[in-house]
Nucleic acid binder design. Sequence first.
DNA 1: TATGTTGTTCGTTTAATTCTGAACTATTTA
DNA 2: TAAATAGTTCAGAATTAAACGAACAACATA
Lengths: 158, 158
Amino acid sequence: MIAIIDSTEKRRQVERIGVALEKLGLTPVAARILGLLLVAEPPYLTLDEIVEATQASKSSVGNALKFLQSEESIEYITFPGDRKRYFQLSTDTWLEGLQQRVEQLTSFREILLETVDMRSDQHAKFNQSLLDMCDFYGEFEEKVESFISEWKKDRQTK
Amino acid sequence: MIAIIDSTEKRRQVERIGVALEKLGLTPVAARILGLLLVAEPPYLTLDEIVEATQASKSSVGNALKFLQSEESIEYITFPGDRKRYFQLSTDTWLEGLQQRVEQLTSFREILLETVDMRSDQHAKFNQSLLDMCDFYGEFEEKVESFISEWKKDRQTK
DNA sequence: TATGTTGTTCGTTTAATTCTGAACTATTTA
DNA sequence: TAAATAGTTCAGAATTAAACGAACAACATA
């Protein structure tokens, strides 16, 4: 963490972001990489720069970069005459990630509906509560999806 | 898994729900308990019944129950003249859990805004993308919260 | 007061995840 | 062709998380 991130304040911010993202389910290294790419100027770094800045091993960073690319959280750009990959945050595709989460919700809702079907008509009140929950998430998913698509439309016309 | 859950089909459903909930971040035991409480009839079970049905240790189940209560995913009821606690899914408070997740989003958005403030005005396009993302989530949170409170209102008048 | 029942706590064990270092491939440069 | 650079793979080490079992506290009942 010498050259790329120059101030103590920035290093601390990388850690804060790292902790926040760990809580959302990322591994420590992956979380620090995203933090770094949010703070770094320019906001694109090579593998070796990330290795230096995070003090993690090349393989850890390499694997984390691969994972983050698969999640579409980051992508890389290149420059003519320079073989290195410059990794940066995906500023276009993060919406897709949210959409994937909504789809996860949908699939759980389907399992839940199946489960209610399996239940007898005893405990009707409980069954109804489960159905209510399904209704809520059904509408919720719709709302979220239409909000996302509207946002995308606005973005395109900009 | 002998007395409480009587059929192979139900046992399989508990596992399916368990796997789905593990993916959403629960531990295996906690996920199986929720699955069990979705499938079981009646939908309230004692600690010992859950121990028997899940084949996990009493302490694992006890700790998982404690955790699920803290998350407001489950609660317990009692019956007069019966000291045992009957654990069941919270059919009222699961919305609070969703709200807590939204709050997590808010706190990450705050960190993100701070981070943009720390950045220079070079790479303005990148900075703008981060701000756009903040805007999106800001509106998103509002939308979700108003949807939740409307839903609650409807529920009360029912 | 003894006995049984319900649920919790705590130290240990087990299992899963995360990270590492070394070796390796592929590509470029001298 | 040799040396350097960029990135990947993989077996094992280190770390973290999950589950266990035994002991314990609280309470009820006999």
